[in-house]
Amino acid sequence: MSRTVAALLRKELLVELRTLESVPAMSLFAVTTFVVFHFALNRSVVDGDLAAGILWVTLLFAAILGVNRLFVADADQGGFDAFLLAPVDRTAMLVAKVITLLAYLVVLELVAVPAFGLLLLGPSIGDALPDLIGVLALGDLGVAVIGTLVAALAVRTRARDLLGPLLGLPLLVPIVIGGARATSPLLASVHPTAPAARWLLTLGLYDLVFGLIAYALFDFLLED
């Protein structure tokens, strides 16, 4: 299985490097959204709840851009059939796609989080960074798993661009709850504190449960 996952990941990397369809668009979208928030809220600096909310909403919508494109090449160019014809474990495709989306999100955050610190955030981002990385990692895992499942559900429908976000956003609400609540004390302008353990636990549990659901159901989305 690891050989298959490696082959799929290599293919994903090659396709993304050649087309530059997902990651640059996601990053650019996030930075642009911060600018839009600046004008929409008429605020130069934000902190606490508001900062956490802006960060998570922006990351979420940027992630949706990647989710919408995740399986398009496979659905349109016969990648699904090619994969199904090979004597390999079908879960490999789920694992490879989750890792791919996770990588997209990490690159997105490497751009978006510093940009957020620079453009909008009041308190310095440096102190919050170690904890923030942990929270983002837990959130990203959930977004990657749910995003992959939703993308696979939506991609072979007539309304794939609409169904992806419509299915994904409600399913991601608990991630936003956990992520934003955990992030907000980190970004407080006075007395920033570590996130409460229950939010991290919420995120971790949610990741785990949806990981199992995706594992159990993904095969049914592949066959014809």
Partner: peptide, 14 residues
Amino acid sequence: LLYATYQPLRFAIE
């Protein structure tokens, strides 16, 4: 809101 997409999903698959 999540279940409201159930029918559109069905409708979009031939």
